[in-house]
Design a binder for these strands. Structure first.
Lengths: 207, 207, 207, 207
DNA sequence: AATGAATGAGGATTCATTCAT
DNA sequence: GATGAATGAATCCTCATTCAT
């Protein structure tokens, strides 16, 4: 039985957590991971520094929360696509498009999100890492493609690693260079390489 | 005329710099980029903290030196391969092999090396960044392949970004997972994907 | 509406600032301006080093605060006297007496107070400097004396500079020598020189 | 018996000391007393830092040497004038002119010279201090003036303190304000005040 | 539960002095 | 005597965490 008071408490708590998330994103954007202090997060979230510790045990926990919330949409989208019907190639195309759109839109949290392991000890265990989870699901899709006969027989896990890290790497490079490709162009380039490789059809035929 | 004293001074200086490099690598390995303090580097290099400042103007400069020295071998190998004769595909294979071997061997500096951009402001200008330089050279190789008629016509720059980030990404994932593939297997997987893509020849033919 | 909490906060803050002022004065006295470190000030003020930074953004700001608080009484006294009715000579006499009393009483802060410009960059703009402000007001009094016909026509600004720096200089010398004149004697000597100069009446008459 | 070697040694040493003086003046000018490090002095003097310690036991001693050499010309000029024949008033006028010219010309070392006591412990004992020596000699001149019947009977020591500190104070204020009076104008203003005071002859006569 | 001042362990950097060559 | 790298104490400042109100 959830009492009224309990529900109100939960509601308030979730509002605070959202404010913290928003504030943290602003601070991460403006000051980078190293410049993200509890002071600044508290100020950006419109609350007192001490209050943060009423909702998170430590800075580490707070950052883990921010990370999780930032990554969640990408995982949800991935989950949805994996479960949908459709051929493997189409799924990969959808995923690369959705990821890119999300990354570009939220490139605020981007660096923090991407450079997962930079903050050592932030996330322990590679398997729980966002990227790892994504790779696993991509692996499933690639295996699906192989079983359907559309994809060559290959090391699906390795292929998934390439697909994921290349997808992210492209965006990363674009931001580092200060200019980003149109989504369509980027997705076409990615799918072109991963579906057909560098070699011409003739070259491939000859092999 | 290089006096004896001058040569000795240079030799001593280069020994100190090597000690600093070695120490920094140890510290980076053990404590991560954020935990790499001047104190720890000095201790690991077997010298007093103040002495570091006789050889480097600032922490920033010291880290730039470490970065440069760590990355240099990869760039030299790349330079060599680019200038060699041979088909584009072979060059890519050589490069991916050499990189992997180096990354695996020096996985100590790995995180720092890879997460280039994590240390914001460490290296300014994406174009001067190690990864960027590598991507440019890979772009040249891919363009060579296109001109030779071996590779499809495509966005060579984008393809290079994928190749480089996927190469690194794979190693990264392996280390995150705590186990690494044999070199041959990894290179074969990489080249298989990038040369021929996911699709079967039949599928490719039909397109 | 000033809430109770707000008033208490202000009160506490003002207590801290007073403690910092007192501590800083002790340290300045004992160790001189160069020896006045944040550590020592914190210790003398009975608080942790970091706490200083909750009340002052930097050492510079802290010292500016100390300076301002130390100088304030002299300026207030000066203001009062300038506005009072009375002849210029009497005003100068009052001022020289008040300054001397204050300087002697607080000879703790003395060196720091006097050697304004020693701490380069501490106070920017000579016009805002304590001494400058004092000189300006003395200039006004001298000009008043000239207009009243009591003082000779002369460069009032230059005369004010002499009056102020000589007033301070005398005290300074006394402290350097380790013995101070009685207030009456000092004021008489000062006023004797500045009102009538070195020359005898006869000599003056002959000019 | 001074051997050749000894004389050569002395000559070399005096050359080094002059170089150190010149270098120190440059550094003091550019960086202020606090910014005057042994490194910078050595560089400006064209020698190695360690060599400074072959000629001066410590930084303190080096600065004392610089101070002494900077102040010497003023004392020599003062000595000369004191011993010359002439009335007291003329002597004071000469001194104030010479001091001003010297101070303006070398305002480089000025701050350091003037703010004697800022660097606490630099010069111990007020009697040895440059200003004190000057004051003593001025006292003698004023006493001469009194004995000659030209000056009123007064506290000569106090008057000398005022004369000296006001002389220096004026220059100081001019530099703080960034503009200096022509020598003649400054000397006239100074002598006007100190010889005849602020009051008109009439006022003086009535007393 | 909210607040924000207090805390104190670090962290980067400077610099007078020493000493081996 | 000259050199300049090595030293390490000292200095300013930051920031995660605690705690009294």
């Amino acid at each position: 039985m959830t009492s009224l008071a309990e529900r109100r408490k939960e509601l308030l708590d979730s509002m605070v957590r959202q404010a913290v998330y928003d504030g943290a994103v602003v601070v991460l954007t403006e000051y980078g991971l190293n410049g993200t202090t509890m002071d600044r997060v508290a100020a950006a979230a419109g609350m007192a520094k001490g209050s943060l510790y009423n909702h998170f045990r430590s800075k580490q926990e707070l950052l883990e929360f921010v990370h999780a919330r930032a990554v969640a949409p990408m995982h949800e989208a991935l989950d949805l696509i994996v479960k949908q019907s459709g051929c493997a190639a189409d799924k990969l195309r959808s995923i690369s498009r959705i990821w890119r759109e999300y990354l570009v839109e939220h490139h605020a949290v981007f660096e923090f999100l991407i450079n997962d392991q930079a903050a050592k000890g932030l996330l322990k265990g590679s398997e729980q890492t966002a990227r790892s989870t994504g790779i696993k699901q991509i692996t499933v899709i690639i295996e699906q493609g192989i079983q359907e006969g559309a994809f060559r027989s290959m090391d699906a896990r390795a292929a998934a690693e390439m697909f994921v890290t290349a997808s992210i790497g492209m965006v990363e490079q674009e931001f580092a260079a200060g200019k980003s490709r149109p989504v369509d162009q980027a997705v076409d380039a990615l799918m072109g390489v991963f579906l057909y490789g560098f070699c011409t059809r003739e070259a491939a035929r000859q092999d």
